Amino acid sequence: MKKIKWVLAAVAVLGMMLCTGCRSGENGEIYVYSYGDYFDQEAIADFEDETGIRVIQDTYDTAEEMYPVIEKGTADYDVIITSDYMIEKMIHHKMLLEVDKKNLPALKNIDSRYMKKSESFDPGNRYSVPYMVGVSGIIYNKKMVGDVKIDSWGDLWNPKFKDSIVMPDSVRDDFMIALRLLGYDQNTSNEKEIKAAAELLKKQKPLVYKYANDSARDLLADGSAAIGVVWNGEYIYTKDLNPDVEFVIPKEGTEFFVDSWAIPKTSKNKANAEKFINYMCKAKVAKKNFDYLYYTTPNEAAMKLIEKKYRKEEAIFPTDETLDMCDTLKTLDTKTTDLYSKYWKEVKAK
């Protein structure tokens, strides 16, 4: 199913390229900078047809890659989408414009729970609008794990799964797991706690089959690994390939992300930027993007349009109780960042 969507997306992109000359763009243009393959291209084409605004897209792989482009003004983008901790950093450095909520009537569709969560990095929701949400958890093959009940980050230290565990290849994500297992704040700046988490990760390392990010889901889908860490949006894709996999959010709680739309201070067309953000908040558009990604949509109005089998799936739409156990990663000061880097190098070198 996902492959079919990729083919359709490719066809849509090709159609847009061939049709560039026929789109008049009578109402101007908008430059969008986003993570790659992060929304249905049909939605972009529909926005152009509806508004007459031509969309020019660029993509990046990581928020860290995006940041210097905006900071240095290498290119003038009207709209970006990026993660919570980076939104927080950009607000701190005065790199974003406030959104005018009067120009965002569809903002009412965003669930108040996620607006409240967003205030942890954007007080008052002044600079950002939630687009997609996700939680980190454990995906496992129920046949391969046997009679072991999977419900804790500690299960990733079970010797029974030696050479069958997939961990993130990411300093903050791995430390989040170890810190939560130890009962510490996932954003701690306490060196003793960071060191303790590193020691725990060192003990686990001989059990780990591979440290991986995007490929983790494929290793679980094809049976190369029994248990691993993924974002909840990868669950449906993986289960479509292997019906034996299940997803669980550990009882110790987990990392939670909010990816949001924002307008850089260098935007040349704020009015069109707000039209674009408002369009993405419309229920039918949010539903289309959910069908493309399977990540949690914070769009409450879109939920009514989503198939019931997905709405009832707690892996995709966590309960309030689960959300209460989740926190976003915070931007750390340079000294603390260096500490994590130092101990991560020790983990990987051992």
Rank of each mutant, 00 (worst) to 15 (best):
E234W: 09
D174H: 08
R180I: 04
R172M: 05
D151G: 10
D174P: 00
V133T: 15
N158W: 12
S170D: 15
I139G: 14
W157E: 07
D222K: 09
K149E: 14
Q186K: 12
S164Y: 07
S215Q: 11
N158E: 06
K203V: 00
A196R: 12
I236N: 11
F175C: 08
G228M: 07
F161P: 12
A197Q: 09
K149P: 02
N190F: 00
I138Y: 09
L200H: 02
M144H: 00
E199S: 14
Y184G: 05
G228R: 10
G223V: 03
G146N: 03
K162Y: 06
S224I: 01
S128T: 04
S128Y: 00
R172P: 01
D155H: 09
M176C: 15
G223Y: 08
R172F: 07
S128K: 00
D155C: 07
K142C: 03
V171W: 05
L219A: 10
D155Y: 06
N190A: 08
M167Y: 13
F161W: 06
Y235V: 10
G154Q: 02
E193G: 05
V166A: 11
K142P: 05
L219R: 13
E193V: 03
I165E: 00
V135R: 11
N125Y: 03
N125V: 02
S136Q: 13
K143I: 02
A226I: 02
D185W: 07
V166Y: 06
L201K: 05
F161V: 13
G183C: 10
K143T: 09
I165P: 10
K142H: 14
K192F: 04
N125H: 03
A212R: 10
Y237K: 13
T188N: 09
K195C: 00
V229R: 07
G137T: 12
E199D: 15
A226N: 11
S170H: 15
V133C: 15
R180W: 07
G228F: 12
W153D: 07
Y211M: 06
K210H: 12
A225F: 05
N190H: 06
Y140Q: 05
K210I: 10
I194D: 11
R217D: 04
P159R: 01
E199Y: 08
D163F: 04
S215T: 15
N141Y: 02
K210S: 11
S189D: 14
K205T: 13
S189V: 01
V230C: 11
P159V: 06
Q204W: 01
K195G: 01
I177Q: 09
M167G: 05
P159T: 01
V229I: 14
A226K: 13
N213E: 14
S189E: 15
V129C: 03
I138P: 05
M167K: 04
V229S: 10
D169F: 15
L200Y: 08
